[in-house]
């Protein structure tokens, strides 16, 4: 326990430091990329527990994100302003912000149970298609909710709360808050992967029938994995809403769910490092290709090249960047010539 606590404290300090560094030395445009990458990591690492670890193919992640975003945004608006009205943006209070995040995570998690319990009876592609359906229905129902702004969604969502000493930072505290949750989800995912739960989940992925025979409660664990992913997708949604200050139901189409899948498979399904790498590549690649687009003078070229690269990467490395391996000291040691990493007899 003290070790976990110390780690947590170190994480908080690191996020604070990162935020200070970025707002002090880096241009706002690039800080935006950093934030978007952070949000993508939360989504990808959360979904990796479902898709990568437990082997349940889900393409409805955007639906959970949408629920989290709208629940969190609405709660935060009500806490901060008391009503939906025009006016300047305000900062959310620290307590209410954390409460809203928790609320959105719980709402998405509850939906995860609701969707997961019946849907996880399905296997393979059928499960994937069902989750896709749930995601789309969620979005369409949100579009039809006039109390949540209908198709135009919610605007004037408060800014993320300030911390002591951050009043003068021009980028605000979004980096701190987003990366705090990146830290949490990565830490939990790594812990989970190494725990009995995680091993049991991997067993389900490898052979569900065999796992059940060995006494793994596969139905329950599948729901647990699903809820884990949904919970963090909800939090990512709420963070996204507070970061962008506005959300529309159309921010969460199936295209976004598919994007998260692409991150996972590109990075290497089943590896936390892979999920992070995939999130970074998929978020950053189109931006890195922008200069090329401007140099050539063809609008939209960056996305064309991005799609091409995606195909080429998959054709030449179908197992993803990391495969199922994790980036660890062992792997790094293996890169040093003349030494066998980790596998000393």
């Amino acid at each position: 326990m003290p070790r976990t606590l110390a780690l947590l404290l170190a994480g908080v300090v690191a996020c604070y430091g990162l935020n200070w560094f970025l707002s002090e030395f880096i241009e706002v445009v690039y800080v935006d990329y950093v934030n978007l990458i952070g949000l993508a990591i939360i989504l990808a690492v959360g979904l990796n527990v479902v898709n990568g670890l437990t082997g349940q193919f889900s393409i409805g992640h955007a639906g959970f994100m949408a629920v989290g975003a709208f629940v969190g945004a609405m709660a935060s608006i009500l806490f901060t302003y008391g009503e939906i009205a025009a006016g300047p943006l305000a900062f959310a209070g620290l307590g209410s912000f954390l409460f809203c995040l928790l609320l959105s995570g719980l709402a998405a998690g509850a939906l995860g149970v609701l969707v997961g319990a019946p849907a996880l009876r399905l296997r393979g592609d059928y499960l994937a298609i069902a989750t896709l359906g749930f995601g789309e229905i969620t979005r369409i129902l949100l579009t039809a909710q006039d109390s949540l702004g209908g198709p135009t969604g919610l605007k004037r969502i408060p800014k993320m709360p300030l911390l002591p000493g951050t009043e003068t930072w021009d980028g605000g505290t979004s980096v701190f808050w987003i990366y705090l949750f990146v830290f949490l989800v990565v830490g939990l995912a790594v812990r989970l992967q190494r725990s009995t739960f995680g091993r049991a989940m991997i067993a389900i992925r490898e052979n569900e029938l065999a796992a059940e025979t060995m006494g793994v409660p596969s139905a329950r664990l599948k729901v647990v994995a699903f809820v884990f992913g949904a919970f963090f997708a909800g939090i990512a949604g709420a963070l996204y809403a507070h970061y962008q200050h506005s959300v529309r139901p159309d921010d969460f189409t199936s295209v976004r769910s598919i994007e998260v899948i692409v991150m996972l498979v590109l990075g290497g399904l089943g590896s936390v490092t892979g999920a992070i790498a995939g999130a970074v590549v998929v978020t950053l690649l189109p931006q890195l290709l922008r200069p090329l687009e401007e140099a050539m003078g063809i609008d939209g070229l960056s996305m064309v090249v991005y799609a091409l690269l995606l195909i080429v990467m998959m054709v030449f490395r179908p197992q993803g960047i990391f495969g199922q391996r994790e980036l660890s000291l062992k792997l790094l040691r293996g890169l040093i010539p003349g030494r066998r990493g980790g596998k000393t007899p």
């Binding site: 692409v262 939209g300 064309v304 799609a307 091409l308 995606l310 195909i311 054709v315």
Partner: peptide, 14 residues
């Protein structure tokens, strides 16, 4: 599946 998504994106943006 991912290359299918890639082709789909390629044709949309292309």
């Amino acid at each position: 599946l991912i290359t299918a998504i890639g082709v789909s994106l390629l044709l949309q943006y292309g």
